Computed example of a mutant assay.
Amino acid sequence: MWKKAIEDVLDKTRANINRFGDLFPHVSNNGKYELNANDEWTDGFWSGILWLCYEYSGDPVFKEAALRTVESFRSRLESNTKLDHHDIGFLYSLSSKAQWIIERDEAAKQLTIQAADVLLARWRPKGQYIQAWGPEGDPENGGRIIIDCLLNLPLLYWAYEQTGDEKYKEIAVIHADKSRRFLVRGDDSSYHTFYFDPEDGESLRGGTHQGYKDSSTWTRGQAWGIYGFALSYHYTKDPLYLETSKRLARYFLERLPEDDVVYWDFDAPIHADTKRDSSASAITSAGILELLTHLEADDPDRAFLEDGLQRSMKGLVNSYATIGQPDAEGLLDHGSYSVRGGNAPDDHVIWGDYYYLEALVRLEKGIKGYWYDR
């Protein structure tokens, strides 16, 4: 099953290289990807897809396209184009860091360390957190963290390993600890965002930007938490991160609907028009694959997690993948970007495509993503 799905991905990605040229896919409307010149937070996912396709197939057409994206990311960093956010890890882990992991290219390594410095600049020492969006002092976002940042922290952990500079790891750990304390609720659900006083770091309130309501559990946010805490455990071996990833994963899997692919928010009213988010199931599948590598064979949660992984991936492949749609640009149908905002609420999203492929190639060949050196 996995091999057939990957072959479909390879065919679509070859076609997309010609379709997209030097532009980057973001989200689609009516099945056609919106393209940009590398100025969105999502652009690393296209680069990551190309690198995964190259690793799996060895076809140089994927490597050539991937290298062009890395050069684009070099130009983006040099021109500081729309980097005033925390998603630097999404951008550079899957582009230049991927090149370093695969080829041990020194220039790619140095570019990735420079990107880690850009992320580090978002550290707010007064509040003791990495600010998610906007400039320092921003009246709306100056005190905001969001759960997505857990997937950006691996860039800092990796930079510590490469340089030996403790500041990268120290800041990543402080932020991960704060995320665990304030974004994860007692019932193992999660807030999307949390606000602090920028002057003293005093906790203010939880909230959401993408979810159904402030107190609800946005499924993609829960997915970021599952994978993100598993990655923090990989780097630090702090058992609290492993426990938190397991708790979030159990909450997610216990709420799978009949076809095993989640709705966009666990608390959204369910009716015929309720949107799904296939990307949340894809992220969670990739995250559980990472989580399982850290569990003992007799861990009491292993069988439940393995079953949930199989259910989720089979649900994606059988009912949401665009297999049999040769002209489709995306790999998964029914992803949602912003249901609340009405922006691509039910279409292809490039991060869903990436995590779907990452999970597939890990299942089929043991090829991991680009969140840490192998």
Score class of each variant (00 low, 15 high):
residue 2 W to G: 09
residue 6 I to F: 15
residue 6 I to N: 02
residue 6 I to C: 08
residue 7 E to F: 13
residue 10 L to I: 05
residue 11 D to A: 12
residue 14 R to Q: 05
residue 14 R to F: 14
residue 15 A to N: 04
residue 19 R to I: 04
residue 20 F to S: 02
residue 20 F to C: 08
residue 23 L to G: 04
residue 24 F to K: 00
residue 28 S to Y: 15
residue 41 W to I: 08
residue 43 D to I: 12
residue 44 G to Y: 15
residue 46 W to F: 15
residue 46 W to M: 02
residue 51 W to S: 03
residue 51 W to F: 15
residue 52 L to P: 07
residue 52 L to Q: 07
residue 53 C to G: 04
residue 58 G to E: 06
residue 59 D to M: 03
residue 68 R to T: 12
residue 69 T to N: 12
residue 70 V to M: 07
residue 75 S to K: 07
residue 76 R to D: 09
residue 77 L to I: 14
residue 77 L to P: 02
residue 85 H to S: 08
residue 85 H to Y: 14
residue 87 D to F: 15
residue 87 D to T: 11
residue 87 D to E: 15
residue 91 L to D: 10
residue 92 Y to R: 01
residue 94 L to I: 09
residue 97 K to C: 10
residue 100 W to R: 01
residue 101 I to P: 03
residue 101 I to W: 14
residue 103 E to G: 07
residue 105 D to C: 07
residue 105 D to I: 04
residue 112 T to D: 05
residue 115 A to Q: 07
residue 115 A to F: 15
residue 124 R to A: 05
residue 125 P to T: 11
residue 125 P to Y: 09
residue 126 K to E: 12
residue 131 Q to N: 09
residue 131 Q to K: 03
residue 132 A to D: 07
residue 134 G to M: 05
residue 138 D to P: 05
residue 139 P to N: 12
residue 141 N to T: 08
residue 142 G to A: 09
residue 143 G to H: 02
residue 143 G to Y: 00
residue 147 I to H: 14
residue 162 Q to D: 06
residue 163 T to R: 00
residue 164 G to R: 03
residue 168 Y to Q: 01
residue 168 Y to C: 01
residue 172 A to S: 11
residue 176 A to T: 06
residue 179 S to G: 10
residue 182 F to N: 01
residue 184 V to K: 08
residue 184 V to N: 05
residue 186 G to L: 10
residue 186 G to A: 11
residue 186 G to E: 11
residue 191 Y to H: 12
residue 193 T to I: 15
residue 195 Y to S: 00
residue 196 F to P: 00
residue 198 P to C: 03
residue 205 R to W: 14
residue 209 H to M: 10
residue 212 Y to R: 00
residue 217 T to P: 06
residue 217 T to Y: 13
residue 217 T to I: 11
residue 222 Q to Y: 15
residue 223 A to P: 06
residue 224 W to M: 07
residue 230 A to E: 10
residue 230 A to R: 08
residue 240 L to A: 14
residue 241 Y to V: 04
residue 244 T to Y: 14
residue 245 S to K: 06
residue 251 Y to I: 02
residue 253 L to N: 02
residue 262 V to N: 03
residue 265 D to A: 04
residue 267 D to H: 12
residue 269 P to W: 15
residue 270 I to Q: 04
residue 272 A to W: 13
residue 273 D to T: 11
residue 273 D to N: 03
residue 276 R to K: 09
residue 280 A to Q: 05
residue 280 A to L: 05
residue 281 S to P: 03
residue 281 S to F: 10
residue 284 T to K: 01
residue 289 L to C: 11
residue 289 L to N: 06
residue 299 D to V: 11
residue 300 P to W: 14
residue 303 A to S: 10
residue 303 A to K: 05
residue 304 F to D: 01
residue 312 S to I: 08
residue 314 K to P: 00
residue 315 G to A: 04
residue 316 L to V: 04
residue 321 A to F: 12
residue 321 A to R: 00
residue 322 T to D: 02
residue 328 A to R: 00
residue 333 D to F: 13
residue 334 H to M: 00
residue 335 G to R: 00
residue 335 G to L: 02
residue 338 S to N: 11
residue 345 P to S: 10
residue 348 H to C: 04
residue 355 Y to A: 05
residue 356 Y to P: 02
residue 360 L to F: 15
residue 367 I to R: 06
residue 368 K to W: 14
residue 372 Y to I: 08
residue 373 D to A: 13
